[in-house]
Design a protein around this nucleic acid. Structure first.
Length: 278
DNA sequence: CCCCAGTCCTGCGGGC
DNA sequence: TGCCCGCAGGACTGGG
């Protein structure tokens, strides 16, 4: 579930470790199937122990720690992963611990209930293949209207499905795609090629507005309670969702329509039939 | 190019 | 009450 707003909130919380040195890397005892760590943990450890953290960045839906060597530790939370400085929600799903020296935080943890997430030490020469333009489009927070339109307007895919493609624009996932299209008043099944100029403008504005609003509220913690910021506090944006997970309830944009749930590309889409016309 | 189904994985909630 | 099944969906892959 962590999408751009949640990962950006994690990044901000974890930024306190800039300047710290990694003194130990360990996989805590965990009886679940281990998550993917690349390269092998002993190689990983040898390459990062003793190194200083120069920067904490967000790369789409990933958090990256740039080391003094130029390599980066990239945390990919996928559905249920968390990057934490505080105590984790529980210890049985704790997947990786970096012990630190020289920062207020003594450790940085990767916790993941479902274990679909991963941790990778990426070398500079691998960066482009892993996170370059072939894999990730412009970041959703800073993409321009013309970039957004140029990348999508020829496509006959449904706009909701296209927004989920990280090669088109990076950072939008299933939850925020529904929210963005509701604010933009665009039907999620509308083919990209059938959007007019004003729709592109509304879409671009809605991308920025919804994501910034969600960052302001520190992301969405859904009913399963999984998502937490770096200090293990829940987000607040779930209380402001206009349509997501609100099927049968009134649309918060127009107050008239009843939110509908449909399935697109095997994923739930929520929309308002009154303000999002086909 | 695009689409779809399957894969990974765990926990939760609905139905019987 | 307890068990099974379906579902949640991010990234990726293989087949059409």
């Amino acid at each position: 579930m962590p999408e751009l707003p949640e990962v950006e909130t994690m990044r901000r919380g974890v930024a306190a470790v800039v300047g710290a040195t990694i003194v130990e890397v360990e996989r805590p005892v965990c009886h679940l199937k281990p998550i993917a760590v690349t390269p092998r943990i002993d190689v990983f450890r040898r390459r990062v122990v003793g190194r200083r953290i120069e920067a904490v960045d967000r790369v789409g839906k990933r958090v990256s720690l740039r080391l003094e060597t130029g390599a980066s530790i990239v945390f990919e939370p996928r559905m249920t992963g968390l990057v934490l400085l505080a105590e984790p929600p529980d210890t049985e799903h704790l997947r990786l611990r970096l012990t630190l020296d020289g920062s207020e935080a003594e450790q940085l943890l990767f916790w993941d209930r479902r274990g679909l997430g991963s941790v990778r030490l990426a070398q500079p020469e691998q960066w482009s293949d892993l996170y370059g333009p072939g894999r990730l489009g412009p970041d959703a927070l800073t993409i321009s209207l013309s970039q957004l339109k140029d990348r999508l307007s020829q496509s006959r895919r449904a706009i909701k499905v296209a927004l989920l493609d990280q090669r088109t624009v990076a950072g939008i996932g299933n939850l925020y795609a529904s929210e963005i299209l509701n604010v933009a008043e665009i039907h999620p099944a509308r083919p990209c090629s059938r959007l007019g100029q004003s729709a592109w403008q509304r879409l671009h504005e809605a991308v920025c507005l919804v994501l910034e609003e969600a960052i302001h509220y520190e992301g969405s913690t859904l009913s399963d309670g999984t998502y937490r910021n770096a200090l293990n506090d829940p987000g607040g944006y779930q209380n402001h969702h206009r349509v997501y997970d609100r099927a049968g309830q009134p649309c918060r944009t127009c107050g008239q329509g009843i939110v509908q749930r449909i399935v697109q590309a095997q994923r739930s889409t929520f929309y308002c039939p009154v303000c999002q016309r086909r």
